[in-house]
Design a protein around this nucleic acid. Structure first.
Length: 424
RNA sequence: GGAGAUGUGGCAGAGUGGUCUAUUGCGUCUGAUUCGAAAUCAGAAGUCCGUGCAAGCGGUCCGGGGGUUCGACUCCCUCCAUCUCCGCCA
């Protein structure tokens, strides 16, 4: 959510920011509601003030043993008037808030202008281009090694719910543990295991709701949502709190299963691991002093990159353009790994600075030099496993048809160096 | 799932229809005293909204929401959380 003051003090700034994003919002309507709301608020406050004076008089009369009946009669209508005005005010406030929750964040000045992913800027590329003969497609390769079972997953849940089998399951667990251990032992994160069901307030806090309701799995009976990312529970952990400034930045790393309906995006790019309804991800979440959030942002990207470097994967860092950024982001980097069989770059991490966009929604503040202010929230995948797995499977094939396990994962695989094809 | 209890400021803990502008204690901050500190004394301090150039002024907030009333921390309804006992259970 944007600072509500902006709508009346500097709506041009909002307009310019939204234009850069290509977002269409009826700002005039919002400004008018806000003006109307303030007008009513003023009369409402005056009426309440009158009532306070009147009831005080009644109290005094009663104390002095005087008959207050006529004063009570006179005040009676005031209550009805207040109730009527209050209803109007509440209605306007709700209308304004409902609209405000649908307004995306404004892009940071440094974000490149653009309309689509084609306008994103490649900031750097790490590692060498894949050399040698074209490897097998990860799905065929996985089948040969017996690591995953999509068919049976589809049988029990639907497409997009793979089963990890044997060493495939262990490899998944190895990735998760490797990511988490790196964050908590080298990068200074505190590990969190949050609930994977959250309430509506949490989903609004981080910006998934109200706009993206159709992407979420819901538990209607209990009013709960399955988390699409650990960002939701971990960020909202501190909702309504005033964080100790000395404790900032707070850095959490959390592994959760993530659930996404992916409504509307089903079609191509859906084969194998590239778009799943359920997947594993380790998420980095940070609460920062507003003045330091952009340094923190760069650090987060670095942590995610470090993982890919240890895995030995060829990747690139994109700076997203204004038109391609997510709803709440003020600035965002994407990390993409190269899948040599598909010959495509696959997004494995998205690292965003939300500034105070989420902190306003979730009411997360701190006190700096005696003044209460909203913190900045940041988060980034570190990392999501499925596409990392794709790149690994396609990049680490041995001439004998086996899968060479990257060194950093071997301790988590009981020292195993290679997964060999099943004997026929 | 059943029965009961509780929810008040940073913390502890009073307050059962009207100066509550929320008693008090601890903690915090400022000042006095002191070479400095402790102790002591005096004072200050919250949130959010509106209004104003500003000092300020008005409103709001006692778990959330709603109701009764001229007036609600106080009474009623409802939801949530915590605690105790019972039941069930990985």
């Amino acid at each position: 959510m944007l600072d509500p003051r902006l709508y009346r003090e500097d709506v041009d700034t909002i307009r310019k920011g939204l234009d850069r994003r290509g977002a269409k919002i009826d700002l005039d309507a919002m400004v008018n509601i806000d003006i109307e709301k303030r007008k009513i608020n003023l009369t409402l406050d005056q009426l309440k003030s009158e009532r306070n004076i009147a009831t005080e008089q009644i109290a005094r009369m009663k104390r002095d043993g005087q008959d207050a009946q006529s004063a009570i009669e006179k005040t009676r209508s005031l209550g009805d008037e207040i109730k009527a005005q209050q209803e109007k005010f509440d209605e306007l406030e709700k209308r304004f808030r409902d609209l405000a929750l649908l307004v995306p964040n404004l892009p940071h000045a440094s974000v490149p202008d653009g309309k689509t992913s084609a306008d994103n800027v490649v900031r750097r590329v790490w590692g060498d281009k894949f050399a040698g003969p074209k490897p097998k497609h990860h799905l065929d390769f996985s089948r040969e090694l017996g690591l995953h079972d999509f068919e049976r997953g589809a049988k029990i849940a639907g497409s997009g719910f793979p089963i990890y089998v044997g060493l495939g399951a262990r490899l998944e667990r190895a990735l998760i543990n490797f990511f988490l251990d790196e964050h908590i032992t080298h990068n200074g994160f505190t590990e969190i295991q949050p609930p994977v069901l959250v309430n509506q307030a949490a989903m609004i806090g981080t910006g998934q709701l109200p706009k993206f309701a159709e992407d979420m799995y819901t538990i209607g009976e209990d009013g709960l949502y399955l988390v699409p990312t650990a960002e939701v529970p971990v960020t909202n952990m501190h909702s309504g709190e005033v964080l100790d400034a000395a404790a900032l930045p707070i850095a959490y790393a959390a592994y959760t299963t993530c659930f996404r309906r992916e409504a509307g995006s089903w079609g191509k790019e859906t084969r194998g691991f590239q778009r799943l309804h359920q997947f594993d991800k380790v998420e980095m979440v940070m609460f920062s002093d507003p003045a330091k959030s952009y340094q923190a942002h760069e650090k987060l990207v670095g942590y995610a990159e470090g993982l890919l470097q240890k895995l030995g994967l060829h990747y690139r860092v994109l700076e997203l353009c204004t038109g391609d950024m997510g709803f709440g982001a003020a600035k965002c980097y994407d990390l993409e790994v190269f899948a040599p069989a598909e010959e495509r770059w696959l997004e494995v991490s998205s690292v965003s600075n939300f500034e105070d966009f989420q902190a306003r929604r979730a009411n997360i503040r701190t006190k700096i030099e005696g003044k209460a202010q909203f913190v900045h929230t940041l988060n980034g995948s570190g990392l999501a496993t499925p596409r990392v797995l794709v790149a690994l499977l396609e990049s680490n094939q041995t001439p004998e048809g086996g899968f060479r396990i990257p060194e950093c994962l071997r301790p988590y695989m009981g020292g195993l160096e290679e997964i060999r094809p099943k004997k026929k």
